[in-house]
Design a protein around this nucleic acid. Structure first.
Lengths: 138, 138
DNA sequence: AATGATTTAGTACTTTAGTATGAATACAGT
DNA sequence: ACTGTATTCATACTAAAGTACTAAATCATT
């Protein structure tokens, strides 16, 4: 919102500056009309590219953003989520246990709970579901 | 390549037309200089947006395009690749066997070969690697 | 202080995954 | 016809994953 206002203010100011510049330059004869037009053309070309880049960068990463609400809605706890992330990285239960400083038994408990909460029979299916639900990054 | 040449040709033609228009209009006094500048500004703003959209649309879907060359380079066969895709969907060996009308034993052979070729210890790790290498869709 | 959820961990068990090896069939290119 | 590769399947095995309990410690909340 704030950015949009800022950008549009910039456009208006730029327009005014260019109009004044064109009038002044023509009156004094310092710059030819072709050069003024060229400057305007290049400026607005760049402005167009800039505006488009901004708008696309704001919309495209939103698609694969992590949906925190869905994680809560599924009743997945902090620790369970940590385990889910490690599973998706391709780690074994033993490796996850070592990484999180707990026993493999604990990880198995977390995994079992995750499978119920994600309605999956296997960890591979859980990965797929978690990605579909946008609760982990692709 | 062809598109780039086409677009640049368009830009040059547009520039020439605008120059001629500006000269003619000023000489005849039909259009004020401000209106000409405004038209040029808007035109190039749109051109900038268009160019940026084209370039981004060409680069962003390329990222998650399947790299067929890499599949061959890794020595992954057609059938093995089919199995890999099913693994990434979260299916078990038995389920894949039923889907592809072969025995579970066959799937196990394919999976073992895949793990070697993808330098992985587990199917979950194979999924991760395959996605990193862009040989399967995210 | 009692309550409910979380995290941890264990045992005992079943199921699935993965390895190693051998072997038959089919198919493509030389 | 021969060769290499792909595909299929089997057996026997080990390893990993997952289930079904039980239970203790922690922690925030009312």
């Amino acid at each position: 919102m704030k950015k949009t206002i800022f950008v549009f203010s910039g456009i208006i100011i730029a327009l005014l500056v260019l109009f004044q510049l064109s009038k002044y330059s023509y009156a004094t004869g310092d710059l030819s009309i072709e050069i003024i037009i060229a400057i305007i053309a290049i400026s607005f070309l760049c402005l167009g590219i800039y505006l488009n880049k901004k708008s696309l960068h704001r919309t495209s990463p939103q698609v694969d953003e992590i949906n925190l609400e869905k994680i809560e809605k599924l009743g997945i706890s902090k620790r369970e989520y940590e385990v889910l992330v490690e599973i998706s990285k391709g780690l074994s239960n033993k490796e996850i246990a070592e990484k999180l400083f707990v026993t493999e038994s604990t990880i198995k408990t977390h995994v079992s709970n995750l499978l119920v909460k994600l309605d999956s029979k296997r960890r591979t299916q859980a990965i797929q579901k978690a990605k579909e639900l946008h609760i982990i990054s692709t």
